[in-house]
């Protein structure tokens, strides 16, 4: 299924970009626009750092950040911190995704579970669950387990909510069509509700990743022996702006990479999903 979809959607992209008057493929255009934005930001940053701000306690030009990155990489420090934070995020997100989807489906299809749990899920979503981080660190220690727990707790709610919404927005007539072929309840769930909710679920995971990265950093600030949060915190203690920005930039790129990965995943598993206002 994904194979066939891939060819089709790509054909269309090419067709339409032709239609809009340029020979550039949609993919190339997207890449070009992203690179333009990044260059503008980087050049602006360097100039502002060199000439705009005198006080090096608050700001560092890109070149200094790059030097700091090189030094920390050579010493092997940076890799250890990145690896710790990455594992916290990965395991926390995996747990949140699996549990969030399962529980979201349950809330959507079971009235009793929904009426018991839906208001509470909404309340917890709005609660700054990250405030519970100190307690989790006391409970699970300074290692990665406590941060995995923080990431899970903060990321799971948007996934639950989006899964539930995704399933409940399924067109009634789609469900009736399945029933007209005498589908069982389980078949309706597996063949109609779940596929129809996929774009919502992926959007929920994206929201979860954003919150999860915050969870990693805040969790580490409250107590950790390794991780980018700690790396940033320690640089702050010595009033060294460059490594702090280095850590922040790495987190920012991690977020972008994960978002890109999710978009790519969505294209693979939901090639049919299409937003009418997109040109391609």
């Amino acid at each position: 299924m994904s194979n066939a979809g891939e060819t089709t959607s790509e054909d269309i992209e090419e067709d339409k970009s032709g239609l809009f008057g340029s020979n550039e493929t949609a993919k190339n255009r997207k890449r070009r626009r992203l690179i333009t934005s990044l260059i503008v930001i980087f050049v602006g940053w360097e100039l502002f750092g060199q000439f705009g701000i005198e006080n090096r306690l608050f700001f560092a030009p890109l070149s200094e950040i790059a030097v700091s990155g090189y030094e920390n990489w050579i010493s092997g420090e940076l890799q250890k911190h990145i690896s710790a934070s990455f594992q916290e995020l990965l395991y926390g997100m995996l747990l949140a995704t699996i549990f969030g989807i399962a529980f979201g489906i349950l809330i959507a299809i079971n009235q009793s579970v929904r009426e018991h749990c839906d208001p509470i899920v909404s309340a917890l979503y709005a609660t700054p669950t990250v405030a519970i981080a100190p307690i989790l660190i006391t409970a699970f220690g300074l290692g990665i387990a406590s941060k995995v727990a923080v990431v899970f707790l903060i990321a799971v709610f948007p996934i639950i909510i989006n899964t539930t919404v995704g399933i409940r927005q399924t067109q009634e007539s789609f469900i009736e069509t399945a029933y007209s072929f005498n589908a069982t309840r389980w078949q309706v769930i597996a063949k109609v509700l779940v596929p129809s909710s996929i774009p919502f679920v992926i959007a929920g995971i994206r929201l979860g990743v954003g919150r999860g990265i915050v969870g990693v950093v805040v969790g580490e600030l409250f107590g950790a022996d390794m991780g980018l949060g700690i790396f940033i915190f320690e640089a702050g203690q010595t009033f060294d702006a460059a490594p702090q920005f280095l850590g922040i930039l790495i987190l920012c790129f991690a977020g972008m990479a994960l978002t890109g990965l999710l978009q790519w995943t969505e294209k693979k598993i939901a090639p049919w999903h299409h937003f009418a206002l997109d040109e391609e």
């Binding site: 299924m1 067109q171 063949k191 596929p195 999903h273």
Partner: peptide
């Protein structure tokens, strides 16, 4: 049905075989 109710996530053939699959 009056509205075709084709599943947007299924290809034409996958839509057509829905009843058999079920």
């Amino acid at each position: 049905f009056q509205q075709d109710n084709l599943y947007p996530w299924r290809t034409v053939i996958a839509n057509a075989r829905l009843g058999l699959e079920l």
